[in-house]
């Protein structure tokens, strides 16, 4: 990673602008990143919410084998060209034993700097790698130090930023978990935050469900520590941090919802294994599960057919459970 980080002499803090792509881990660390640079006095610019143009441009830039989320990310990076000097692309390998990230996050800085090697942008990165004793604090502080900030100032900025992110997280989790107590049909959307919160691919699905009177709860907004622990009840060997959070969240709340929509993008390596495992192990709990895989298509008919019929099934099932039996004939 060192070859990507620029030598300190080149930085001019007052004029430099760091671009943050509104994609992938932005939905997990957005507050942390923006606050961190704000505390250091570095200007940031965040790309616009995903639209068709960003997605199309990203697909053109990305390798064909990459997942849709990665393609969208490349579109966000491209949209930042000319608006900033550096683009923040962290490398996150793991958080400890059986807590690894998808390999895409490990490769991301290298992938971005290779795809955009002709463009006038430079990649700013920090490196989280627990086997090298690089946790988030050390990694981000090292990045700031390499930019020419003092160790003390960097540390202080990190602390404030981390606190802000923690507060935002617990607020979001509290708000989300409160929805389990709402009346009506409760549906859990299980997918990575960068899919569910994406303006172009995930948001329309949430919107559709909300418009149809469903109480939508997100699986990824959960007490992460508890979810990691609970995920072992479904699979003691699952090793991906993001998948474990979602799986754990479903295990924790299995009695609180009427159905699950497993939302993934094509081709997601993690979901292809984890979602398959959940479908097969579901023989025990018999929760209705709808598996949906999104790709770069603009038609929404297939998506709507699936969601609409799934909701019908949930409603019919609920009527049976309530003892009403079959619908009264007119």
């Amino acid at each position: 990673m060192d070859e990507i980080r620029m030598p300190k002499a080149e930085y001019n803090h007052h004029e430099m602008v760091v671009g943050i792509p509104r994609s992938l881990l932005y939905f997990r660390y957005g507050v942390l990143w923006e606050r961190f640079f704000q505390e250091l006095g570095v200007k940031t610019i965040t790309s616009a919410p995903t639209n068709l143009k960003i997605m199309t441009n990203g697909s053109r830039r990305a390798a064909s084998e990459m997942c849709l989320a990665m393609k969208i990310y490349m579109g966000h990076v491209e949209s930042l060209i000319g608006k900033c000097d550096y683009i923040l692309v962290p490398r996150i390998l793991d958080f400890g034993l059986r807590r690894v990230m998808c390999v895409n996050f490990e490769a991301l800085p290298d992938v971005v700097s290779n795809i955009f090697f002709e463009s006038p942008i430079r990649v700013l990165s920090y490196n989280i790698d627990v086997s090298k004793k690089l946790d988030e604090r050390r990694a981000m502080v090292e990045m700031a130090v390499s930019m020419g900030f003092s160790h003390g100032k960097s540390n202080k900025a990190y602390k404030k930023a981390r606190k802000a992110q923690n507060e935002a997280d617990s607020r979001a989790v509290k708000q989300n978990e409160a929805k389990y107590k709402n009346d009506g049909i409760t549906l859990v959307l299980a997918g990575h935050s960068y899919i569910l919160e994406d303006e172009y691919i995930g948001k329309p699905i949430m919107q559709y469900l909300n418009e149809n009177g469903v109480n939508v709860v997100r699986a990824d907004l959960v007490d992460r520590k508890a979810a990691l622990r609970e995920s072992e009840r479904l699979s003691p060997t699952l090793k991906w941090e993001l998948s474990r959070e979602i799986v754990g969240s479903l295990v924790m709340h299995v009695h609180d919802f009427d159905g699950v929509v497993l939302l993934s993008v094509y081709p997601c390596a993690l979901d292809s294994m984890v979602n398959d495992m959940m479908l097969r192990k579901n023989r025990i709990t018999h929760v209705p599960i709808l598996q949906m895989t999104l790709d770069a298509q603009t038609g929404t008919a297939g998506v709507e057919t699936r969601l609409e019929s799934f909701l019908d099934i949930l409603k019919m099932r609920k009527e049976v459970e309530a003892g009403n039996g079959r619908e009264a004939e007119a």
Partner: peptide, 8 residues
Amino acid sequence: GVAVDYAM
């Protein structure tokens, strides 16, 4: 007599 689960 009531659909309870499906896949497509």
